[in-house]
């Protein structure tokens, strides 16, 4: 196959366009840099920042988590370990221990999406470093954050995930409802007692034609 090349003009053969390039880089010398001095100036964060998952803590210091195990179940990286225990409080059950292995966590946000109690949320904490593996497994006391600090993220996340929920959770009042994602057709289309829906084992035993 022939290589197609443009015929160079005389100035191009004399390498004169080099001068044009030189003047460009010289102009750039005096332009404003676009560097963020990282440790001193942090990364900009917002409610949309999906950082490491944290547990929310009520104003009275109690844990919101009811140890239902949904997040543990949904976690694709098996990063979450929950040991539930009975409690005298109204919610009856709370985690005795709640561990997230930050080395396994892939920051996908599934736990936040699965949680029905606004208990686990993706915080805006991004930095995590340490020399040993053990210190990356964070326990309940390390994970707890006051819910007041996470209000914005909770409202933001509810605004997204309410489209999948039968019972919507409160969204951030600052968010314009017009911008909320449309309610999912899955959440509305399938009635609760749909006669066409079969038990799971029936589906499993059905022969597929494929």
């Amino acid at each position: 196959m022939p290589v197609l090349a443009r015929t160079l003009s005389f100035t191009e053969r004399m390498y004169l366009p080099i001068v044009k390039g030189l003047f460009f880089t010289f102009r750039v010398l005096f332009r404003k840099h676009i560097v963020r001095m990282y440790p001193e100036v942090g990364i900009p964060r917002s409610a949309a920042t999906r950082g490491q998952p944290r547990l929310s803590q009520n104003e009275d210091g109690t844990v919101r988590c009811v140890a239902c195990g949904l997040c543990e179940f949904v976690c694709p990286a098996y990063a979450i370990t929950i040991h539930g225990a009975a409690t005298e409080r109204f919610i009856e059950r709370e985690p005795r221990e709640f561990e997230i292995d930050m080395l396994r966590c892939i920051l996908c946000g599934f736990c936040e999406e699965a949680c029905p109690k606004e208990a686990i949320y993706m915080s805006d904490e991004l930095e995590h470093a340490g020399p040993t593996r053990a210190e990356h497994v964070m326990n309940k006391t390390q994970l707890l954050r006051p819910i007041s600090k996470m209000r914005e993220r909770i409202g933001f996340a509810n605004n997204i995930y309410n489209r999948w929920r039968k019972d919507p959770l409160p969204v951030d009042p600052k968010i314009n409802p017009a911008n909320a994602p449309a309610v999912s057709p899955i959440a509305t289309a399938v009635p609760r007692n749909d006669p066409t829906m079969r038990p799971l084992d029936a589906i499993a035993s059905t022969k597929t034609t494929r």
């Binding site: 880089t25 750039v28 010398l29 332009r31 404003k32 840099h33 676009i34 560097v35």
Partner: peptide
């Protein structure tokens, strides 16, 4: 330094 300035860096 000069290479950085020419690439919008510090």
């Amino acid at each position: 330094r000069v290479s950085a300035w020419m690439q919008y860096r510090i």
